[in-house]
């Protein structure tokens, strides 16, 4: 389905990012595994991709730094010659109530989760415009549309990603590049593992399907958007959240 396509996944060392990298590799894609800090985890993702018979390289880059991002794309292009699919998945949390949220906490989340997407979309646009094709998939979140107490920074960034997705979709449509978003609900990852049990139980109570999602639930939808099956879709946000937002 994606045989020979080069895919760059940001934040691919763990969690949803790793699941996406492996899902797309299963479908035939070669993978650029971006990571910011977890080198050991990133190399594990690379090994798993290689075990599937695909090519993979790992590139360290802090997506909030445009120079890092440009270097990463340069490395990826030198190695693979093109970028067909970009998945903007890298994200962090610094939860706090608005009243207590420090400026640093706000900035850190906006820089990585929103500016990071801008930096990567901008860098990917050049090679994709030349190819006259490309698929960009941004990972946002259910809280970007619902809001969530204690996550003003994260919610603002994720809502921003939805607007960025629509704008990039409009700007790039005539060049054969589609830009869509996937909004996961609460997924069973290290990011949600830190939540206390009572908070988790309360969360599950809000999910019509009655369980946390698995990383593979998200990866499957990303695969769909990355494939030719989704050629006539752009600017959309697909909600994969067990029915939380409908």
């Amino acid at each position: 389905m994606l045989t020979g396509k080069t895919t760059l996944v940001t934040g691919a060392s763990r969690g949803i990012g790793r699941a996406i990298a492996l899902k797309l590799a299963q479908a035939g894609a070669n993978i650029v595994v971006n990571y910011a800090g977890s080198e050991a985890a990133a190399s594990e993702t690379v090994e798993q991709v290689k075990a599937l018979g695909r090519e993979a390289i790992m590139v360290r880059a802090n997506v909030s730094d445009s120079e890092d991002v440009n270097e990463m794309f340069k490395t990826a292009l030198e190695h693979f010659g093109n970028i067909d699919i970009l998945v903007n998945n890298a994200g962090i949390t610094r939860d706090n109530l608005l009243m207590r949220m420090k400026e640093e906490e706000w900035d850190a989340v906006i820089d990585t989760n929103l500016k990071g997407v801008f930096n990567c979309v901008k860098a990917a646009t050049r090679p994709m415009m030349k190819q006259r094709s490309g698929k960009i998939i941004n990972i946002t979140s259910v809280v970007g549309v619902l809001g969530n107490a204690g996550q003003a920074n994260y919610v603002a960034a994720k809502a921003g990603v939805i607007g960025l997705t629509k704008t990039a979709a409009r700007e790039l449509a005539t060049r054969g590049i589609t830009v869509n978003a996937v909004a996961p609900g609460f997924i069973d990852t290290e990011m949600t593992a830190v939540l206390p049990e009572d908070v988790k139980a309360n969360l599950v109570g809000q999910i019509p399907l009655g369980r946390l999602g698995q990383t593979d639930d998200i990866a499957s939808v990303v695969l769909f958007l990355a494939s030719d099956s989704a050629n006539y879709m752009t600017g959309q946000t697909l909600h994969v959240d067990g029915g939380m937002y409908m």
Partner: peptide, 9 residues
């Protein structure tokens, strides 16, 4: 505008 960006590229 996009054509001009491409031309520059």
């Amino acid at each position: 505008s996009l054509d001009v960006v491409e031309l520059v590229m």
